[in-house]
Design a protein around this nucleic acid. Structure first.
Lengths: 246, 246
DNA sequence: GAGTGGTCTAGACCACAAA
DNA sequence: TTGTGGTCTAGACCACTCC
């Protein structure tokens, strides 16, 4: 690979970034599935005709984005959507008390159906209003107590055959990966304080007028396209949403 | 600098990390103030007796933490607490509407006084209960509308002479840096949904029972010690708090 | 012992900014 | 033109894992 092969000066893209793009495309097309042991740095350098240092820079960047996992002495692996990682990467709620670490809450599905996208879904998922989506509503519990109600919306054209599932697991990102080969690579969340609706108070066993933390999440695949909209409404009497800056 | 100079095998610390520590200590002791033009990579490498690549790795890490700013062709500079950076790094509230970018809200101070640390302040700031602190309360406005009430608590032993200030600027982190040489390097925030108190409704002109987003922030200096506790209570009818994962 | 990633070095050339 | 950071290379040795 020559430096800046068929690139004009204006379209300059560093070699390590081009390498990264090519490696990501192998994740996208499924030739490198989650858990796979990548070729060694030396081997990749030979295959791509670049130096080991350039490969390393690309691998380091992908590791920083949680796309890969590197282990000294063993090798480099495609990251898997196992609970521990998803919890750490995408779940920011934690108990207030014992300098609380976060725990994956259990979930129980309330209902799940197909529907036409409403305006919010259409805008978030880059669909036309009325396009088919799947909707899942569930409650999530911590220590037996319901802590949040969650509404998940998925484009039906991406998640084909969603209605044929027997059950919905707690960790849906693992499901997306295993069943449709979709990797959730990043997400954006918008937080607001809202008042519990009657539906919320019923499921969360909280009084009318209880303030809830509403988390609207748009999750994106490896290419950055939105593939999931999730709106969670959380009791925060004994929990909080933790953010580290930067 | 020899590799792992006076380090046992167990206490191994990479050379670039040692370099980073030494560079940070120059920020801490004030010999490299905000805005200063650092020596070039080559010069630093000579001074520290390491290769340019090792210096680069330390500088890149510090740049990623917003401690330094690098500009190709010009050099490397100590980051300054100017509005644009602070806004980007520490202010996550944005207007809902026009795919809204965030804006520094104006602020007006309600009152400011010395007091003994309450339990929350003592725990957050690593003080004993009753130790002297400064407290500032202010309202912040966006487009003339009050959007949040903010309570800032500072250890009086760190911020000496705070009571002699003539006024409190909008960007207090710039003040901390200029007046006391304190750099806010990172912060942790805990978010909850709460109900507006009578005090809140008065200042925010919102109805009783309005849900507010409460943001409790602990800001830390370069060494990671907590130096500011800030509790903000925000109207989120037309604003949201934005988080990017990862 | 063989193979992997992690660190460190030395040197080359490029892109950019300022004098 | 000079000096800076940005990229790329080639090669060495270290630390870790597994056989």
């Amino acid at each position: 690979m020559a430096v800046n092969e068929d690139q004009t000066k204006i379209g300059f893209r560093p070699l390590y970034a081009q390498v990264k793009d090519r490696l990501i495309s192998r994740l996208v097309d499924g030739s490198w599935p989650p858990g796979m042991h990548l070729p060694s740095e030396q081997e990749l350098a030979r295959q791509l005709s670049v130096s080991q240092g350039t490969v390393r820079k690309a691998l380091d960047a992908m590791t920083a984005e949680s796309l890969l996992v590197r282990r000294q002495g063993r090798g480099t692996f495609v990251a898997e959507p196992e609970d521990a990682r998803i919890l750490f990467q995408f779940f920011r709620l934690a108990a207030d008390r014992p300098s609380g670490e976060n725990v994956f809450p259990d979930s129980s599905v309330l209902n799940w159906c197909g529907a036409g996208a409403n305006d919010v879904e259409a805008q978030a998922l880059h669909l036309e209003s009325g396009n088919p989506v799947w909707r899942i509503e569930r409650i999530r519990m911590l220590g037996g107590q319901p802590v949040l109600v969650e509404s998940i919306s998925l484009p039906a054209n991406i998640f084909e055959g969603f209605d044929t599932l027997e059950s919905i697991p707690n960790n849906v990102y693992q499901l997306y990966s295993a069943r449709w080969g979709i990797t959730i690579a990043k997400a954006d969340e918008h937080l607001k304080a809202i008042t519990a609706t009657r539906n919320d108070t019923m499921h969360l066993h909280c009084p009318a007028g209880e303030p809830l933390l509403q988390i609207a999440r748009i999750a994106r695949n490896l290419q950055g396209n939105p593939v999931e909209l999730r709106i969670s409404r959380c009791l925060t009497r004994s929990m909080h949403y933790a953010v580290s800056l930067p």
